[in-house]
Design a binder for these strands. Structure first.
Lengths: 325, 325
DNA sequence: CTGAAAGCGCTTACAG
DNA sequence: CTGAAAGCGCTTACAG
């Protein structure tokens, strides 16, 4: 900055103003400064800026996986909105509980102005750490607290019930559930919706499979094999994720089973593949992009000390009916 | 830091040493400091630290998409290796050329110690900007320069030739190519391998389809439709990505075509789905994780002013043979 | 509209 | 093994 101040024949102060508060600098001076900055390939040092101002205008998002998820949609929503609001977005990948804490520490150390967390099940101590730092935090894809701070999502229970209403209405009697072993609140609520719906319909509701969260498409295959071993009359599989559901569809194809004639499958998430895989996957659309945009709004509002009237935002879901049930 | 110095009855300096160079502080003093830090929920301010030391020990990676890619594998490799080397990793998502430049500016502004770029086609000016900043940069998934600085990948041309050798050996005569319109060097090399191989075998090599890069699974469907319109005898489709290939497989299923009897498909990337989709996708495994780990090594070495003997690393590829051809 | 002074929370290089 | 001084590159609050 010193260099460009010299080149433009002004003080460093004026250079800073030209970038931060252009209105305070005469147009002519401003142009001279911009020209000098360009010529020198100057990129303002945000590290120094953040330290001096105590603000960072940058939010962090911790995503549990980059693979097979609709976190991509959330990230897109976050990014678009933050960009519009003049903030930056940086991501950290955290596939284990330890890495999740590590990522939070990284962001805290760099003094982010806000943090987005995915899901609601976090390692012990994470919430306390974040609260102690008084950092604005948004948890996503759920409205079932308790939350560390704010949340944007939808009712996983309600969505699950809506999906099950369809399954039951179609007359399926022997229905299985394919879930994850490390169940966070989102997955538990989906399972609860599954079990309550079947119980209320007077149907068996204990055909459950829980695989490790590292399982991708193969989870659907394992679930199907496992549940078929318990109940050979199994007619339908409700999956905690579209990825599991597509895996199950693949397994049906291998067995030569027609879908939904011989067997029905439903998923969760409405990933791109849900619309492409034959015969189309019936699933729950989670509006990931809106979740991201809303999270951005909450974080920025909080960062500017504005009151956030409704810190738990339910943005709903939608059932998407396709060929698989 | 001031606070914890007071609480532990030492100077701030000693606190800093306890965290940065534990060996320089007596064990007893150190314990006192750690206890105080814990009690106060102290998270060292890296912003101040970076500014003071001029080092950041943090690398940035710009990924073009979070969806359907094996960048996830690269990120995993990067993360594991950087963690071991005591560095932090932060990601930026950039799905357009402008966002790519924006992300680079964000990282530059925060004075990263190194940058990982995906692919080799970048907006004009990006290379100049990065070079002007004298920032260590690694481009990935290719060894076909020119590069901004360093690179880790494999020969897309060689991989494509190896795959085509298989296709031709199986006797397929009418073979199409499904690629991306915004072709960066990686995709161009794959296409060149495709065309050269067919030409050398005396076969037609102009059955090409190029879709926008936003196309996911549906790209395979579009490619198939388009090329079939040009050449109804089409027997096989070579895809620039497993995602396209799976989309093509879905389309075959919809048409009731047997694979590879009636139609053959090959992909690129060996994503998880390649092994799961029936009848298994023949593809090129790109060793994304090793690419990430190697990129981390290069960046850290360069950051520590160590000489990097071979800044363009070819880590090879592998053809994975499955049921689709 | 422009600028001199102080300070953000650390680290560096050095002295004790 | 411990600490007082200077400085990293900005911004803030103020004066001119």
């Amino acid at each position: 900055m010193e260099d460009i101040a010299r080149a433009a024949g002004v003080s460093p102060m004026t250079v800073s103003n030209a970038f931060q508060q252009p209105a305070k600098v005469r147009a002519e001076t401003r142009e001279r400064i911009y020209a000098a900055a360009d010529a020198l390939g100057y990129v303002p040092n945000r590290v120094a800026g953040n330290l001096a101002s105590g603000r960072s205008r940058f939010v962090g998002a911790i995503v549990p996986s980059l693979r097979n998820s609709n976190f991509a949609g959330m990230v897109q929503g976050l990014q678009e909105r933050l960009e519009a609001l003049g903030h930056e977005l940086l991501l950290a990948n955290a596939d284990t509980a330890e890495r999740q804490v590590g990522a939070a520490r990284v962001f805290l150390g760099r003094r982010v102005s806000g943090l987005v967390l995915t899901g609601t099940e976090h390692p012990p101590g994470l919430g306390a750490m974040l609260r102690a730092a008084r950092l604005p935090v948004v948890e996503t894809f759920s409205v079932d607290g308790p939350f560390i701070d704010m949340a944007v999502g939808f009712s996983n229970y309600a969505a699950s019930r809506a999906l099950m209403a369809l399954v039951i209405e179609q007359g399926y009697q022997h229905v299985g559930f394919a879930g994850y072993a490390p169940r966070d609140m989102r997955f538990r609520e989906r399972q609860r919706g599954f079990q309550d719906a079947l119980a209320e319909a007077g149907l068996r509701n204990d055909l459950l499979f829980f695989g490790p969260e590292t399982l991708g498409f193969s989870g659907g295959r394992h679930a199907l094999d496992h549940l078929l071993g318990i109940e050979p009359r199994l007619q339908a599989l409700v999956c905690v994720t579209d990825i599991f559901a597509v895996g199950a569809l693949f397994e049906c194809q291998r067995k030569g089973w027609s879908v939904p004639g011989r067997f029905a499958v439903v998923g969760y998430g409405d990933y791109e593949i849900a619309a492409e895989v034959p015969p189309g996957l019936t699933t729950v659309q989670t509006r990931a992009r809106i979740i991201g945009a809303t999270a951005a709004d909450l974080l920025v509002a909080r960062g500017e000390q504005r009151a956030v009237p409704d810190p738990i935002r339910d943005i709903g879901y939608q059932i998407v009916r396709r060929g698989s049930l």
